[in-house]
């Protein structure tokens, strides 16, 4: 056996090579050079503009001239607690909570079936079936619900066919959740949000459930627990981090959205719409910034709590 000889091209000479050698000798330099372009945009321009915008929440607006008074004050932040503004915050948090709960209830059986009973092929099909709606166009999905919820639309028609139009009318005549038609009620808004964010709940819950060992469930059965008791005392606690991880998405996405309430929903404002009108027609950037701080703070709080439950291992 003879030693193989490789016919290697001789190394390139010149500036590029010397530059390459320099990079290899100094590992930090290469990291710095790679990071510089994305960091200049995201760290300097994007983060900078975020701080400039949100920082204006400590300024106030002159009521007569409508110009921004650049003196630090807490007045704008306190304005959030005025009844009209506080209502907006409470309404938005209420909707986000309802959406999150509904998402969890609908997502759980799907995730549970996919994690425990589906074979490899069925699992791939489930995954695609969840991913396709997730990545479909946001506006098209909202449009689909506008079609479905319209007074003359499909839901009313099916309700009529099934003899449930009485029940639908009764639901719509209820205070708070009702309205003249589904497309101008909180019910319609919550349904649309639930539809939009449901995949964000399914994926982490499924990931958490996949990690529940089958032997644990068998052990619970062997020790005499019925299916219901096993579910409550073994499966649900172990799936909780996944539910919390999903809730982080459904909650924060609902808090920040202003398009759905504009198209489907009542005339009462939610947080996103308030920010939109304040920065636009009202020209009150300080209050818009103060409102924008709310979802960011709520989510920071949520994330801190979620981290304690170990939710991030389920993402």
């Amino acid at each position: 056996m003879s030693l193989a000889t490789f016919d290697l091209p001789s190394p390139r000479e010149g500036a590029l090579r010397r530059f390459s050698d320099l990079l290899l000798r100094r590992g930090h330099l290469i990291v710095l050079l790679l990071l510089a372009p994305p960091l200049i945009w995201l760290g300097l321009v994007y983060l900078g503009s975020l701080f400039v915008f949100l920082g204006q929440s400590i300024f106030s607006i002159d009521e007569f001239s409508g110009t921004i008074v650049r003196e630090p004050t807490t007045a704008t932040l306190l304005e959030l607690f005025r009844p009209a503004n506080f209502d907006i915050l409470m309404r938005t948090v209420g909707i986000a909570t309802a959406v999150t709960l509904l998402c969890a209830v609908i997502a759980f059986p799907i995730a549970y079936y996919a994690a425990r009973y589906a074979g490899p092929r069925a699992k791939a099909a489930f995954y695609l079936a969840v991913m396709m709606p997730l990545w479909s166009s946001y506006l098209v999905k909202v449009y689909g619900w506008k079609l479905l919820l319209a007074k003359e639309g499909a839901i009313s028609w099916f309700a009529g066919r099934l003899g449930l139009d009485g029940a639908l009318d009764a639901w719509l005549s209820l205070p708070l959740v009702g309205g003249p038609s589904l497309s101008v009620s909180y019910t319609g808004m919550v349904l649309t949000f639930t539809y939009l964010w449901l995949p964000f709940m399914i994926l982490p819950v499924q990931a958490a459930l996949e990690r529940v060992p089958a032997s644990l469930i068998e052990a619970a059965g062997d020790l005499g627990a019925g299916p219901g008791y096993t579910f409550r005392s073994v499966i649900l606690p172990l799936a909780m981090p996944g539910v919390v991880a999903g809730a982080v998405f459904t909650f924060s996405l609902t808090l920040g959205d202003y398009i759905v309430p504009q198209i489907i929903g009542t005339s009462a404002l939610v947080l996103g719409q308030a920010v939109y009108t304040l920065q636009g027609t009202a020209g009150n950037i300080p209050l818009a910034a103060a409102f924008s701080l709310v979802p960011i703070l709520v989510m920071a709080l949520f994330l801190t709590l979620a981290k304690r439950t170990g939710a991030f291992d389920a993402m």
């Binding site: 994305p38 960091l39 995201l42 760290g43 321009v45 994007y46 983060l47 900078g48 503009s49 975020l50 400039v52 915008f53 949100l54 924060s252 808090l255 920040g256 959205d257 202003y258 996103g272 920010v275 939109y276 920065q279 950037i285 818009a288 924008s292 979802p295 960011i296 989510m299």
Partner: peptide
């Protein structure tokens, strides 16, 4: 975290911040 931020924050916050920038 900085890379995730533009997608984690509500779109409206990113939008207004960029508009002002």
């Amino acid at each position: 975290l900085l890379f995730v931020l533009p997608i984690a924050l509500p779109g409206i916050v990113t939008g207004i911040a960029l508009r002002q920038a």
